[in-house]
Design a protein around this nucleic acid. Structure first.
Lengths: 244, 244
DNA sequence: TTCCACAAACTGGCATACAATATCGTGGTC
DNA sequence: GACCACGATATTGTATGCCAGTTTGTGGAA
């Protein structure tokens, strides 16, 4: 065991008290979180030794973590040139949102039939948090609350497979969803949509909940042009080159 | 490099000529194939050293492969008690089929709009192969051709994300889908369903293709009782205990 | 000044050695 | 005879060293 010297790693090295997870599992979670929080952006290279230092472990658990993330599609291998955070083309991004829309729609339908009282409350709380964050223009807070809202619906579907797949996909597109969340007006327009979806679930209207969620998540409407506009403004050429 | 002695490993050790994939990637593919082919069944333990011997590599690439498969949900970790091929509960299985149904439905809808001529031919060929296999009661052949049929539709959706997710899910439920395929009458009933789906795709009727595929894949109708009957007959208690 | 070639450092892939922990068998005692 | 405890063994988790392929930088020649 290496003793932590004064050159402390930049990441926390505490083990979560809940479960003594293995180091590789710990690295998976922490890396996922860093990507989800936008600290590592699509296209960033992932150097094994650097990550090992960063997390205070050896290369082996880092490599295993990267393999897992690669299998999830969160990072991609470029042959012997190392790995990098997955960079979705514009086409991939639209595809991913169409898949996510279907899965969220299914989750909403099943949630409408299966939701439990405690999840009922949790969903209302998440919706409340979204509203508050939107009112005070707290984009970061809204992003968090929005994740909670959608994750609660996934949990309420009581469909373990669906929850897992949805979570994987959510993490994969989270860097891009962030930029959408931060679009002006996006937060405000989400609130009534959330409200309608939630009400449909509460009254057990699976078809309606499903349909509402599908259009809420789908990017192909207004969202697409908004996104394109944003990308043009901020010059994310990597995405736009796909349009040539 | 270890020279292959006369105690040859039971698996082929040739490198595919196409691309010099890494050993861990090779192990992933070969293990997936063995699970897909039913050579390794749900609940089977996966011993690292044994697999390393089996594939003629060291434990490191085997471990990395297992990590990837674990991330896909194909194998599950049981703490320090090693890994085993994922064993879906009955509830999980129904959930998985409901998710697969939605994703295949989406694939069919997009395929109806985007299919290319060469994929048109490929789909017809796969359908032909299914028919032939069904006629001569070749369950194994039908299983293969059926995979090809569904995979062609996924490819024709030209949705990379969807194809990947669907592939992962397909592999995960393949052991169970096998038992369904081998139900008496299942092959025969699939042929007209495939026919209808294919025709809907060919005439670009996305809504119809989607709907037909959804009911084709969904287990909740006749398929469920068939499956339960099968499980009872063959006493797969591990699944049935979930019913208690 | 520019381009090519060669070398050195870097980085990922694999194997092996070591550490920690769980399981199983055996022996002793109640 | 049965149950518990302790130790041997097997298996997983982690670290490290070596090798191969790639990239980059430098020096020389055109």
């Amino acid at each position: 065991m290496k003793i932590m010297s004064d050159t402390s790693p930049s990441a926390e090295t505490v083990i979560l008290p809940g479960e003594p997870e293995s180091l590789s599992a710990s690295v998976v979670h922490r890396l996922e979180l860093e990507i989800l929080k936008g600290q590592r952006k699509p296209g960033d290279r992932l150097d094994e030794r650097q990550l090992a230092d960063h997390f205070g472990v050896s290369r082996t658990p880092v490599r295993e973590a990267l393999q897992r993330l690669a299998a999830s599609g969160l990072v991609v291998s470029r042959g012997r040139q190392g790995l990098q955070v997955a960079q979705l083309s514009l086409a991939d991004l639209l595809d991913a949102f169409s898949v996510a829309a279907e899965m969220e729609a299914l989750a909403s339908a099943q949630a409408a039939r299966r939701i439990r009282p405690d999840q009922h409350n949790r969903l209302e709380a998440a919706h409340q948090a979204c509203s508050v964050a939107a009112n005070i223009r707290d984009a970061e807070g809204f992003y968090e609350a929005n994740l909670e809202f959608h994750e609660t619906i996934a949990a309420a579907s009581h469909n373990r497979i669906l929850s897992e797949e949805l979570r994987r996909l959510t993490v994969k597109i989270s860097p891009y969803r962030r930029t959408i969340t931060f679009q002006p007006g996006r937060m405000e327009s989400s609130i009534p949509e959330h409200e309608q979806i939630m009400q449909a679930i509460f009254r057990g209207d699976a078809a309606q909940a499903s349909q509402l969620m599908r259009s809420h998540v789908t990017l192909l409407g207004d969202g697409l042009s908004d996104l394109l506009h944003f990308l043009r403004l901020y010059g994310d050429q990597k995405l736009l080159t796909e349009l040539a």
